[in-house]
Every structure is written in C-alpha cells, then in structure tokens.
C-alpha cells in the first residue's frame, strides 16, 4: 500500500487512542481529588506529567489549577496533544484517505469531532468532566469497533492497529509510572497508609478494575503494577498491547515468527520478548520507574524506525536488510 496512506491510517489510530487516554487520565484524577478536603492544585500536576506536556503548559498557563489543566488537556487547540487537537487531526487524516476507510468509520469520526467541538463550547464540561470523558471513551470504542467490523483486516487495518497499540502501551505505562509513586508516598508499597479507593480508581481509569478483581482479588500495589504491565490477556496492559503490535507488524512484513525483515520489527520483537519473560519482583527491585522509562524510550525508537522502514522516502535507495 501507499506509504502516505499507511502513515495516515497509523497516525489516525494513534490520535484517537491518545484522545481516549487523555479522557481516562482526567477521569481518574478527577475522581481521586473528589475525596480531598480542599482543592489541592498540586494534584493536577501529575496529570501533566502523565502526558509529558509540562513545558508546553508552563508556556501559556500560570498555575496548574484544575480549570487550567483541564482546559489545556481537553480543549486547547494550541496544544497539539489536547483531545480537541487529536480528534481534529484524526478526522483530517481520515478525510485524505476516505477511499481506504469504510463510510461507517468516516461517519463515526465525524460524530467524534462534532462531540468534542460541541463540548468545548459548554462551560459545564470542565466543571463536571466525568460524563464528557465517558462519552469520549465510548465514541473511541465505537470507532475501533467499526474498524474491526467493517474494514478488511488488510495492511491498512494492521497499520491502524499497530499505531493504536503502540500509543496505548505508552499511555498505560505513563499512567502506571506517575500514579504508582503518587499512591506510595513512602515507597514501601505496604503499610497502613494504603488507600484502596485510590488504587481502585487507578485500575478503573484503565477499565481494569473488574478484570483485576476476577484474576488477582485483593488490591496489592505490586499486583496492580504486574497486571497493568505484564498481563497477556487484558487489552490495556502494556504487554498485551506490545504483543498485538508485534502481531500486526508480522502481518505487514510477512516475516516468519521469531524472525524479522526490518529494524523496527527487530526492536519490537525484542521489546516483546523482554516482557514475555519478565517478573514483577525483579522489575520493582531494579526500580519500576527506571524500567518504565526504558520501555518508553524503546517504544519511541520503534516509532521512529517504523517511520524509517515504511513511510519515509529516503529508505528507497537501500533495500531492507535481510534477517
């Protein structure tokens, strides 16, 4: 398929997944702060850390109040990673490849765009963000469902899933990284200060609470980390997302399993193997934060290499290196 089309569909999915994750972050943070006696502004700073947009925020806002952070993450069209920007770019991407996506997907994207635009004009959205966040999540699900159910699972579809899974792995890792240390002020992971309500909120923001309960039972920080990081069956877990990304990559390249044709494929396979054999106790002992940081770096590199291997024009002078 055309490189431009592959790139467009890949980013379309990344933008949608990004918008959905912002909605999730806002929702969990809002719920966590609800129980507080006073509106602590410092509790909205971690949200900016989660999306890694602190510098961008500091340029245009004076204090990380709830209103400012929510405005910045939801409806600030100068922030390229805000929900409104992500959805607008996803729609614009779709417009340039309408011959590739199904009309149902196109209509869903239109609806999504209109939903976010309309919400941006209503002040109540920021005062009570839960309902809006839920609608964003649901619309994103509808869109992914429409892609699954109405598009051929061909190369374009796999590029779309590759983008979505890479974005999701990154965002779940950020959520875990920031909240884990927030919820463990003394770093011990045990003790009387454990706030089950807030740990439950973290799981819920990844739609993971019910699955976690069924599989792991009681809330234990180590197990929560294990679940969000290493679970193979839960669709928002980092490991699951990377496995699916690897599957799609293989469908795109046609490589035999455990082999590779492209550099990005090699790196993705390696990252997935790391998770295949990882144990949570080792990770925590070596430092959860360091481990997640490394994971994010590797994902970034994979994203760049995907661009080099499939989208860029420069690669065309050299054929792909054989395995």
């Amino acid at each position: 398929m055309l490189s431009r089309v592959a790139e467009t569909v890949y980013w379309l999915s990344r933008y949608i997944e990004r918008a959905e994750n912002i909605a999730r972050f806002i929702d969990v943070n809002y719920n966590l702060t609800l129980g507080e006696a006073e509106p602590l502004s410092k509790q909205w700073t971690p949200l900016l850390e989660t999306t890694a947009d602190q510098d961008e925020f500091a340029k245009r806002y004076d204090r990380p109040t709830r209103e400012n952070v929510l405005q910045f993450l939801s409806f600030d069209d100068q922030n390229g990673n805000s929900m409104i920007s992500c959805v607008a770019r996803a729609r614009e991407n779709a417009r340039t490849i309408r011959e590739v996506i199904s009309s149902v997907v196109w209509e869903q994207l239109n609806t999504f765009h209109l939903l976010v635009q309309a919400a941006g004009h209503v002040p109540e959205t920021l005062e009570q963000p839960q309902q809006f966040c839920e609608r964003v999540r649901l619309t994103s699900h509808l869109l992914v469902g429409a892609m699954d159910a109405t598009m051929s699972h061909d190369e374009a579809w796999h590029f779309s899933r590759l983008g979505r899974m890479i974005e999701r792995a990154d965002k779940t890792s950020r959520l875990l990284d920031v909240q884990y240390y927030n919820l463990l002020p003394d770093g011990s992971g045990v003790g009387p200060s454990l706030d089950v309500v807030r740990w439950a909120a973290l799981l819920r923001s990844a739609s993971a609470l019910e699955s976690y309960r069924r599989l792991r039972g009681k809330i234990v920080p180590r197990r929560v980390a294990e679940f969000l990081m290493l679970d193979r069956k839960f669709p928002r877990a980092m490991h699951f997302a990377v496995m699916r990304a690897r599957d799609s990559m293989r469908m795109i390249t046609g490589s035999e399993s455990d082999t590779y044709c492209y550099h990005s494929e090699q790196l993705l396979g390696r990252l997935c193997s790391n998770l295949d054999y990882a144990v949570i106790d080792d990770i925590i002992q070596d430092g959860l934060h360091q481990s997640i940081d490394q994971f994010q770096c590797q994902l970034n590199t994979i994203g760049q290499e995907i661009h080099e291997d499939f989208f860029s024009v420069d690669r065309l002078n050299a054929p792909p290196a054989p395995a």
């Binding site: 398929m1 055309l2 490189s3 431009r4 592959a6 190369e155 590029f159 795109i252 499939f310 989208f311 024009v313 065309l316 054929p319 792909p320």
Partner: peptide
C-alpha cells in the same frame, strides 16, 4: 507519492 526512477514512474509503498 510518485517518483521517477530508472526511467519509470513508481509509487512509494510500504514495500518499496
């Protein structure tokens, strides 16, 4: 999406 190379027109695809 198109380039001229070796005397022919080509489109730039994910497989070259």
């Amino acid at each position: 999406d198109l380039v001229v190379k070796d005397g022919f027109v080509h489109m730039i695809t994910t497989r070259g």
